[in-house]
Amino acid sequence: MGPAADDYPHPHLLGIEGLTPGEITLILDRAQHYAEKNRSADKTSNILAGATVVNLFYENSTRTLTSFELAAKRLGAAVINMTVGTSSVKKGETLIDTAMTLNAMNPDALVVRHADSGAVKLLSEKVNCAVLNAGDGRHEHPTQALLDALTIRRHKGRLHRLNVAICGDIAHSRVARSNILLLNTMGSRVRLVAPPTLIPSKIERMGVEIFHDMEEGLKDCDIVMMLRLQLERMEGSFIPSVREYFHFHGLDRAKLANAKPDALIMHPGPMNRGVEIDSEVADDVERSVIREQVEMGVAVRMAALELLVQNHRKMGGMA
């Protein structure tokens, strides 16, 4: 007995872009319900019994894949994981072909991760089941932004009038883009803190403030959101060395001292300790909510799957 599917009017969850504050709140409220349930003895339900969820991952990811798998299973759905190596196949043709093939098997939801921006949207145009974007290139990663929001809301009690600093490899980060969109939509202020080479062109037009100096950027922040330095996505020299990066832009106690005393430390994982974050800060139980983010990930994905599959069922699985 979930909320009425009419409240979430989209057939897919491709990004935060286009979601209203009401729709975001709806997903988060439902996720909060699952967060509590997940801590109880009775973690599973049969809300999605009979449904099939396919996790189609074109990029390696243990954490997100596991999180989606667990979410679907806790709702009683049947889950299939497909990890498609990007190097072994001719990518594009396979994307559409695989989509069509999977679609012919009538799944209820496809959870897709792909290394190219826009690939998940392209795929969603070719299928008639619900599509969840589990990360496309450097474009969006909506469930990550939602789980971050849920984590923040649980600690701060709100998502508006907060100062959030997103720090690090903005240029290669879909997490940053989704978070900027979500936090702006909910009425918080976002600052980006990174060396100039990791700030994409004209990003200030998305309604953010830009800082290159970390101490300045963290001043009076409520939330410090660190990003993983995506060395594997870097073509060319964005930073001189990891050592230099950590020196200027890695989060340590000294730099953190500029933020509010109760500022939360977040990281989408997996962390590069000693690159963008010091272990001492990452493991600080008073401040770091990094493990809770992982926990909320399952809850948010349960909520998203529930809403989308129910929507899809309501539309009669129109073939």
């Binding site: 921006s117 826009g118 474009h139 969006e140 062109s201 004209k202 990003i203 998305m206 073509e235």
Partner: peptide
């Protein structure tokens, strides 16, 4: 312009595409 697929700027940044100046 290596690896770029559109004009750099706000739209490329929003779409997460590599832009060329």
């Amino acid at each position: 312009s290596k690896g770029a697929s559109m004009n750099s700027g706000e739209l490329a940044t929003r779409l997460g595409l590599t832009g060329v100046s």
